[in-house]
Amino acid sequence: MDVQEVRIHAYGGPETMIVEDHVLAAPGPGEVLLRQHAVGINFIDVYHRKGVFPIPHLPGSLGVEGAGEVVAIGAGVTRLRPGDRVAYAGPPVGSYVSGRLMREAALVRLPDAIDFKSAAALMLQGMTAHMLFTRVRPVAAGDTLLVHAAAGGLGLLLTQWASSLGARVIGTVGSEAKGALALEAGCAEVILYKQQDFVAEVQRLTDGAGVDIAYEGIGGSTLLRTLDCLKPFGLAVNLGQVGEPLGAVDLARLGPQRSLSLAVPGVFAHLRTLPDLQAGADEMFEKVLSGAVKATIGLELPLEGAGEAHRRLEAGTTTGSLVLVP
């Protein structure tokens, strides 16, 4: 099958990504040939492009999330058939393509009611939310949560999911427009972190009690200051290091007087160790089908627009999820 692929020949800026044509071989044993209809963009793609997390080889493609249709299957494939609608998230890197070969075990079937673009926007971030709420610490009605970057793709999903469980969500955002989006998703209150001290605001909004759980993907000083937003026995969850590298944390900042916990979970480990990947994905899809959660696509571009998508993502001007359409 003839396909187009966004590739880099060297690590660097968005300009290093170029679209190239090549031909895919027939699927081997246990493999599925997939025609992709949508590709999700995530910040880890920026790390791969820059070489912070090197990709397996250069030249090579980027991306860890996509959705499409099964075109052909290899020997030993028993669960999927040509024409099946599927999606995936996680390694191997290389989803910025119009078609690719994937292991059958890495793919999940899509419900008929979830379209390809929504699936590409949901898989990685939706399964991250699934990990947080089912594996890291369950959220209960009455809990108070802090969600940093609440108007981003993951932030909106966390807000919707937690709100559906009866939790109170306080979100940090970078602008009034992003604040409106976060409030619409279910935030009880939003904090404009560029204008307000988020620690002081959290303490004010909770009458000095603090929050039960805080989610942040910025790292560095933001993570350390987020600890000051927690109530005793509260949990801070780091989900990335967009702003600063993840440094050492002095255990004295956690306890015993404050009795805090810190988690640094990885969604790829969650996907890799789930006893039944399809069952886990179905639990996430059920939140979508019930109306509790929906994909919010803030930017949709063709494969040729991958560089522009990365520029906007790094500039922090996007809201919701970013999707490429081959």
Results as ranks from 00 to 15, higher is better:
G142E: 13
V97K: 08
R85Q: 03
S95C: 10
R135P: 00
A129I: 05
L154C: 13
L124A: 09
G68K: 10
Q125V: 10
R85W: 04
G142I: 12
A151H: 15
G126Q: 03
D115M: 01
Q125A: 09
D84W: 09
A151Y: 08
V97G: 04
A120H: 01
A151L: 08
V97Y: 02
P82L: 14
L132N: 01
G94T: 13
G155F: 07
A149L: 09
D115A: 03
A120V: 08
G99I: 07
A120N: 01
G66W: 04
E65R: 11
G99Y: 08
L107F: 08
R103E: 11
F53I: 11
G63L: 12
P82H: 13
S61M: 07
G99T: 08
L62M: 13
H130V: 00
L145A: 03
R135F: 00
L132I: 06
G60K: 01
A106Q: 15
R79Q: 14
E65L: 15
Q125I: 05
V97S: 15
A120M: 02
A141V: 06
I55P: 05
L101V: 03
T78L: 12
A151N: 15
P91R: 11
V108H: 01
R109C: 12
R100Y: 06
G76D: 03
L145T: 05
G66S: 15
P92G: 12
H130Y: 00
R103D: 10
G90H: 15
V86H: 02
G99N: 11
D143W: 01
G94E: 09
V71K: 02
G74Y: 06
D112T: 15
F53D: 07
I55S: 10
V139P: 00
D112I: 10
Q125F: 02
R109P: 02
G63I: 13
A121F: 00
M131V: 06
G74C: 09
G68E: 01
I73F: 06
A89M: 12
G51T: 10
L80F: 14
A141T: 12
V77N: 04
V97W: 01
S61F: 05
A140E: 06
S98K: 08
L62P: 04
T128F: 04
P59F: 13
Y96N: 06
P54K: 11
T128N: 05
P138M: 00
M127P: 04
M102I: 11
E104T: 09
V77A: 07
A105E: 15
G63D: 10
A72S: 13
P138E: 10
A120T: 09
P59I: 09
L132D: 00
G51F: 07
L62V: 14
S118W: 00
L132Y: 02
R103K: 12
M123R: 05
G94S: 15
G63R: 13
A106I: 06
D84L: 13
I114S: 03
G83N: 09
M127V: 11
E69I: 14
V93M: 12
G152C: 05
R109K: 15
T144V: 15
T78I: 02
A105W: 04
E69F: 03
I73E: 00
